[in-house]
Amino acid sequence: MSIPAPFRRVLEAGDPAWTEGLNPELVVVYGDKRRKYLECYTMQAIEEVDEKIESLPRGSVERRMLQRLFNGQSHPTSVDETGRLVLPAKLRQKIGLTGEAFFIGAGDTFQIWEPETYETEEQAATDEWLDELPDDVDPLIYLDRQPGE
């Protein structure tokens, strides 16, 4: 599948080993059974996740489970010369991807969805959240709030 150019720029910027002419590397996390999407991490982003996992107490259930979710259920790869990403059949099957994909950027990560799944599940959840807001509330107000407010 072809990675949108803006997402490729983020992957390049987030790969310390990348230089002009090389293919940026990334890690595709397919995660637990509840995930209906693939999450693509820049190399810097996945290193941050790994550092946080390593900071957890050795032998803790949380550390072990997060290692399994991020290290054991991921696929290191790179974007090819044509800007495409080749996903193994296992990953395509996990999200039911048979044709075009839907991409959502989130800073130094992006998600890959089967378009109909996104539309029926994630968009419905967003619509539900918006419907709960008073009509005169613009969701942009949440950008200025501190976590927990």
Rank of each mutant, 00 (worst) to 15 (best):
I3K: 03
I3C: 03
P4T: 08
P4E: 08
P6M: 09
F7Q: 07
V10G: 00
V10H: 01
L11D: 00
A13K: 15
A13D: 13
A13E: 14
A13T: 08
G14D: 03
G14P: 00
D15Y: 05
D15F: 07
D15T: 07
P16S: 12
P16I: 13
P16E: 07
A17K: 14
A17Q: 14
W18Q: 04
W18C: 04
G21E: 03
L26F: 07
V27K: 00
V27D: 00
V27M: 04
V29C: 12
V29F: 03
Y30S: 02
D32R: 13
K33N: 11
R35P: 02
Y37T: 03
Y37R: 12
L38W: 03
L38R: 02
E39I: 06
Y41L: 02
Y41S: 00
T42S: 10
T42Q: 06
M43R: 10
I46N: 00
E47T: 12
V49Q: 06
D50S: 15
E51Y: 12
K52I: 05
K52D: 10
S55R: 15
L56V: 10
G59Y: 04
G59S: 05
S60W: 04
S60F: 05
E62T: 15
E62G: 06
R64E: 12
R64G: 04
M65G: 04
R68S: 08
L69A: 10
F70G: 01
G72Q: 08
G72D: 03
H75A: 07
P76F: 09
S78N: 12
S78I: 01
S78L: 09
D80P: 01
T82E: 07
T82M: 06
G83D: 01
L85G: 00
L85R: 01
L85E: 04
L87M: 11
A89W: 07
K90F: 08
L91N: 04
L91F: 07
R92W: 03
Q93P: 00
K94G: 09
K94H: 11
I95A: 04
I95M: 06
I95Q: 05
G96K: 11
L97V: 08
T98D: 09
E100V: 10
F102Y: 11
F102L: 15
G105Y: 08
G105P: 09
A106N: 10
G107C: 08
T109G: 03
T109P: 02
F110C: 02
Q111H: 13
E114S: 12
P115V: 11
E116F: 14
E116S: 15
Y118E: 03
E119N: 11
T120G: 09
E121Q: 15
E121K: 13
E121R: 11
E122W: 04
T126S: 13
T126G: 09
T126I: 15
T126Y: 09
E128Y: 14
D131I: 11
E132N: 14
E132D: 13
E132T: 12
L133R: 02
P134F: 05
D135P: 05
V137D: 06
D138P: 02
P139Q: 10
I141S: 01
I141K: 09
D144Q: 14
Q146A: 15
P147I: 09
